[in-house]
């Protein structure tokens, strides 16, 4: 009972803080805070999706950045073709409206996750970790090699996707858009893990053979949740492309996949809200360390090792007092 109240208090105060962030940034005359907050919200969207895999299904995917980057590139490529009026593969025209570009990003990432998942899920455990890594790396090399879309250098575009009633140049408005997306994704995932589907996933995590014995084909559920997580990552990637108005192979780099896993574990595996705290911790720690030294990774690496070795429950566990 006390725990439940404490959990709600933590969530409510965090939500309040995030809602008030632009005002705080304004007061403190630190406009960078809004960009940082947007980055946190975007990474959190992808990390919450990854938590469905890691925390609820027991699938340690090391290729999440592949779908994140793919979603970003869909937005970037559509904007690229819209700018010069050319056609993608000679058929598909470009687009700058969010209601076209974002669903397209979600759809393409989901399809990629469906294909990659169908192959990767034939394996499990360590092989699964390595294979998802390898497939994401394939996407990375693919985008590095396509010179039309900038190759190594990435692809920039001039303005954010158009949303009704929202000025695309307004950074604060875009922050609230990302926050709203995060809230929607969290709510949807929260309902999902409490549905029959979610219970089956937990069952698969504990013992897939037992699920098969009661007549449930674990493979189909795993593929479904892998596709869903890919779709959510694609949405996050679309937001990321809009934040920077730039996409590059860095978005698909394997270290990005590692970062997403760290966010989930750091925040609290299998908690959904935990990864939001994990994303915030990663973004803030990185931005703080980069101000301090260019060799920030020499600190970040050991911090990661220490966190993994010494903590078990993640930030959310510490905040909310979960067992």
């Amino acid at each position: 009972m006390v725990e439940a109240i404490r959990r709600r208090l933590v969530i409510a105060s965090t939500a309040l803080l995030m809602l008030a962030l632009p005002l705080v940034a304004d007061r403190l005359a630190m406009p960078d805070l809004v960009a940082l907050g947007t980055q946190v919200a975007i990474y959190a969207v992808a990390a919450v999706g990854l938590d469905l895999l890691i925390g609820y299904t027991g699938l340690s995917s090391f290729g999440h950045a592949g779908f994140f980057g793919l979603g970003g590139y869909v937005v970037g490529i559509l904007a690229f073709h819209a700018a010069d009026g050319s056609l993608f593969l000679g058929v598909v025209p470009g687009a700058t409206a969010a209601w076209i570009a974002w669903p397209a990003a979600i759809l393409i990432s989901a399809l990629a996750a469906l294909a990659i998942g169908a192959l990767s899920l034939r394996t499990s455990g360590v092989s699964f970790i390595m294979i998802t890594l390898a497939f994401a790396q394939m996407l990375f090399y693919l985008f590095v090699s396509i010179k039309t879309y900038g190759g190594d250098d990435g692809l920039g575009f001039r303005r954010r996707n158009a949303l009704p009633w929202i000025n695309p140049r307004d950074d604060v408005a875009f922050y609230y858009v990302c926050l709203a997306v995060l809230a929607l994704v969290l709510a949807a995932c929260h309902r999902l893990v409490r549905s029959r589907f979610g219970i089956v996933l937990l069952g698969i995590k504990q013992n897939e053979r037992r699920m098969a014995a009661i007549g449930l084909d674990g493979g189909r559920y795993k593929l479904a949740v892998f596709t869903l997580a890919g779709a959510i990552a694609g949405l996050a990637g679309a937001l990321q492309a809009n934040l920077l108005r730039f996409v590059s192979p860095d978005m698909l780099h394997w270290t990005m996949s590692g970062d997403f896993m760290v966010m989930v574990v750091l925040g609290g595996v299998g908690t959904l809200v935990g990864p939001v705290f994990g994303a915030a911790a990663m973004v803030l720690l990185q931005s703080w360390l980069t101000q301090w030294t260019e060799h920030w990774m020499i600190v970040m690496g050991p911090v990661l090792v220490a966190v993994i070795l010494l903590t078990r429950r993640g930030i959310w566990g510490a905040l909310a007092g979960r067992r």
């Binding site: 970790i129 970040m300 070795l309």
Partner: peptide
């Protein structure tokens, strides 16, 4: 470090050694 990870799950092993990569890359650069 790694000795402490033998009985942890693969996810923890991946993340801890991921941290080591960051460390070694930066250490070599320095």
């Amino acid at each position: 470090i790694l000795r402490r990870l033998y009985f942890r799950d693969h996810l923890d092993q991946v993340l801890a050694t991921f941290g080591l990569i960051l460390f070694f890359n930066e250490a070599m650069a320095m």
